[in-house]
């Protein structure tokens, strides 16, 4: 019995780690420019394809491939910001308009990738990165991809935290997040900070996509298929909490794998329903806390906060409250 459990937990950790890396970028976007960017998941697709291209020239060179994915997606994110979002934000349009614009950007990128991939014949592609087993635990192989994702998630979380807490740029970013107008009049170069924010957000999306693309086949809907999962993560996180994002990432990862396996083996639920689990999380959380996990609370959900306090091994503190 339970021979599936070890593998399932490992997969949950892997998926959760990917979600953490990608969602931290979205949380940053939500915190700093208050934009629910529905195009964020497309960075995942682009990162996956950058991985496909670069790995064909530099097989197994994770550093080069990862850097390429990060930089290319950062450039795309910056371009998207300059072309689409900045003109709208400068006009102080409603969030509804921004959401529509982000859907438009997502659609443009997605079908742009579709067009290119169908011409290049890579509608379904794999990265040229060898997957091998590092260790075997309970008949479950810990592969290098799993290890990479988990280490990366921890590394990114710590680096982002250090960046936000210690560097001038990071502090400015937090200042903008907590009070945009105050930050502006206190002499922070807001456009520059926002540019850096987009570089990090896009880069993290791309990096996450590239690692995910080692594990799975890269297709033009790689990102789109995870869009609502990523939003489930940030909703659990109360939109702007980085600690919450890390916890949320693993909650979604575990719900999609371990919980799904449990439902499958014990209640005979088809794996086809797997995408519904994050949806259920979104609905349940939005209903339990109909205020939409207001950013004024530190980690959004008191449930999560209590959980976070209990797992005190976590090195991070919640963000300062936003007003």
């Amino acid at each position: 019995m339970l021979e599936w459990l070890a593998g399932s937990i490992l997969l949950s950790l892997f998926n959760g780690s990917i979600y953490v890396v990608v969602s931290l970028g979205l949380t940053l976007t939500l915190a700093v420019v208050k934009l629910p960017n529905f195009a964020h998941a497309e960075f995942l697709t682009i990162g996956g394809y950058v991985g496909v291209i670069v790995s064909s020239a530099y097989p197994d060179n994770l550093l080069v491939i990862g850097a390429a994915a990060f930089l290319f997606c950062a450039a795309i994110a910056l371009a998207v910001h300059r072309v689409a979002f900045k003109p709208l934000m400068d006009r102080k349009v409603s969030i509804y308009i921004l959401v529509l614009a982000s859907f438009a950007v997502a659609q443009f990128i997605r079908y742009g990738v579709f067009s290119w991939a169908s011409v290049a014949g890579v509608l379904s592609a794999t990265q040229n990165i060898k997957v091998y087993s590092l260790a075997t635990l309970y008949n479950t192989e810990l592969t290098n991809v799993y290890a990479l994702a988990i280490v990366l998630a921890i590394l990114i979380s710590v680096l982002l935290e250090l960046f936000l807490k210690l560097t001038t740029m990071g502090k400015s970013m937090r200042a903008i997040a907590s009070n945009f107008d105050l930050a502006r009049i206190s002499g922070i170069n807001v456009p520059r900070v926002v540019d850096v924010m987009w570089i990090i957000a896009g880069g993290l999306g791309g990096l996450g996509g590239m690692v995910f693309g080692i594990y799975t086949t890269v297709t033009p809907v790689l990102g789109f298929n995870t869009l609502l999962d990523i939003f489930a993560v940030v909703i659990i996180a109360g939109l702007t909490s980085f600690t919450g994002t890390i916890i949320g990432g693993y909650i979604v990862g575990f719900s999609q794998n371990t919980l799904m396996d449990f439902l499958h083996y014990y209640f005979d639920v088809s794996f086809g329903y797997q995408p519904l689990l994050p949806f259920a999380l979104i609905i349940i959380i939005l209903l339990l806390k109909p205020t939409g996990l207001a950013p004024s609370s530190q980690t959004g959900l008191s449930l999560i906060r209590r959980f976070a306090r209990r797992s005190s091994s976590n090195p991070k503190e919640p963000e300062p409250p936003k007003e």
Partner: peptide, 9 residues
């Protein structure tokens, strides 16, 4: 689809 996205933007 891309043209529609551009129109909307």
């Amino acid at each position: 689809y891309m043209v529609e996205a551009v129109i909307l933007l």
